[in-house]
Write a protein that binds this DNA or RNA. Structure first.
Lengths: 195, 195, 195, 195
DNA sequence: GGGTAATCGAGACGGTACGTCATGTCTTGTG
DNA sequence: CACAAGACATGACGTACCGTCTCGATTACCC
């Protein structure tokens, strides 16, 4: 019966230091070098303080990212009226992030942990991914032919992108982003079910 | 200058024992429990014999899978004339494999390692993934409207599937497989570019 | 900069267990079988705990012996007034110890390590040997003709003994001990410099 | 029943190369670095060739030394008529050798192995040590008072020397050598038994 | 002078132990 | 009681050598 710690007495200073240290280490040296001991040392914190509040390095990265996202406000998807242009913007941005080794390090970390633990995958999905996917889903509403699962529709945009990133099956360029948007939209467009 | 070992002197007995042990352990206990020491012990082999021929556990799993695939012959995609039916078959099969925790363990392993090492990702792509993707690409030829990158076309089928599997964004069922095929085909079909 | 561990936090339980395990193993199986892993296993201790406080197995044996010696109090050399009788006692005791394979195992260990590392030899000399030699040196005072280096005088007793033990050049018996004392005393006795 | 190899077919070239390599390695890097694999590599020889003819590295060093000694001819102890002067010569020479880290490395090796294996100690004694000690023993004959074991007499010269070398209990200088000879001779001189 | 049996260089093999690293838990003051 | 510090038991890492083994390729002796 390991009783839960008293959250009201938690040190904000330590919490922030840990999150900052984790982000700094992961961008400097990659996820492989991100050990609990390294975080503790860098943050000037005892290891126990980390284990008291997090289950592992994955959760720390997750929290750090969530913090960052919260600070930046909700993900904004422009609504210029031109659906294709708007989607190109987001897809291009995501592709650019994945193409950058430093920037994609956090995504790499979360993906690895998701593959390792189902409950972790659930957390990533609900806290990080869902909000992003939902903005696309909302923007798509009304432009999709009837009978199509909205979740599947969104996956049509992000799935190929992640697949290409993970398995390096091709270049991650703006042209690729545009072609992907083009293709996915063609699938969804009303009247596309029959040539 | 660590000179490479003499492959002609390699012990076939040990090679097979190691590959078998790795597969047995990964299906029994998962990738996390797959340590070099465990493989060595199970295979009745010295650790050095493993390190002599492989760089890490990822490569062993990769070789084991390649062996298996080679034994099973090239992946066969039926060509009944009905493209949609044929694709449903493969996509359903893949979805079923991903839905099974045991069967997907190897895919999980290869994905984690691909995210960890670029050169490993290249190997997975070339030795495992490419042959599979190419059968779809070939089958698709002639049924896709002009100007579409064939690789992107294939990714439209597999990307969403893997994304859903990794991040658990939805159920992996036959209905899902069919819907995915339906949607992807709609995107590719000649005349789909404009409603 | 490998900073030194905090000695005040050291676990007395582990320290003792390690020393005891080392002594038990060395008398049971000899110095060759005394591995760090065996000590750790026998003591129920992690290897790192050993490496944190000792440089190698030699130092452990040294500490164990020092502990034992400390517990037994300072080496007592009787002073009955009969110098020759007193010396026979110590030399006989030492010869008996060297003649016993079990008892001499520790001496063997310390000698091997002394031959391997100069700094180790210094430790053995200062912590173990010096006290023993000094009791002889003190007892000899006043019975030695002028101009003789006291250290050399003491070596005259112990040197031949160890030499015979190490290189097995002859039996280690009480007769030998007595003859050695006889001879060494003859060398030191006032008036011995000229026949 | 591991039948002994046929000595008549032995490769003289390999034998010499191994002995040379062992001596070179031991003087260059010390006994600790003298591994069978290093010798084999340096000598351009297969490991099996070493194991076929020797039991371990100690025996190789022993053979190498014996070879060297044989080449140099039997140890010569001068007989100028002045016993003390003659003994000073040998003792000084031995002390000088022990004082030199490079030169004493072989002695170190043989001593360590002697402490490890009784049968090895016997070999060292019979093949290396005895001839040296016997020259002293012979030279001493006639100058020693009755009733003294000649072997013990010799040990009086070499024992203290080795003891001081092994345990670093004092400097190994010419003055030391002379004082040792002086003292030992005093013990042996006829009429020394009673002041 | 060809057949054959051993030694030879080379190095892969199953092992053991090494010394290091990180894990997650526990312990010891300090604020 | 949270915290910084860090010792602890555990377990895997990747490396170094061990001593045995198997593989052609020279030998060198015998018929």
């Amino acid at each position: 019966m390991p009783k839960p710690p008293d959250a009201t007495r938690r040190s904000e200073r330590s919490r922030t230091a840990i999150l900052d240290a984790a982000l700094a280490l992961i961008t400097e040296s990659g996820y492989a070098a991100l050990t609990i001991e390294a975080i503790a040392a860098r943050a000037g914190v005892g290891k126990q303080t980390i284990y008291r509040w997090w289950k592992g390095r994955g959760e720390i990265v997750l929290d750090a990212l969530a913090e960052q996202v919260t600070a930046a406000g909700p993900p904004a998807l422009p609504d210029t009226g031109d659906l294709e242009a708007d989607l190109r913007l987001v897809v291009r941005a995501t592709v650019a992030e994945l193409a950058d080794p430093k920037l994609s390090e956090i995504t790499r970390a979360l993906t690895v942990e998701s593959l390792t633990s189902e409950s972790f995958a659930d957390q990533v999905r609900d806290r990080i991914l869902r909000p992003q996917l939902d903005t696309i889903k909302d923007r798509l509403r009304g432009h999709v032919r009837a009978g199509i699962d909205p979740d599947l529709a969104v996956e049509l945009f992000v799935g190929p992108m992640y697949h290409r990133w993970m398995l390096r099956t091709g270049p991650l360029t703006e042209e690729y982003a545009d072609a992907l948007v083009d293709l996915a939209l063609a699938a969804l467009r009303p009247g596309a079910d029959r040539g």
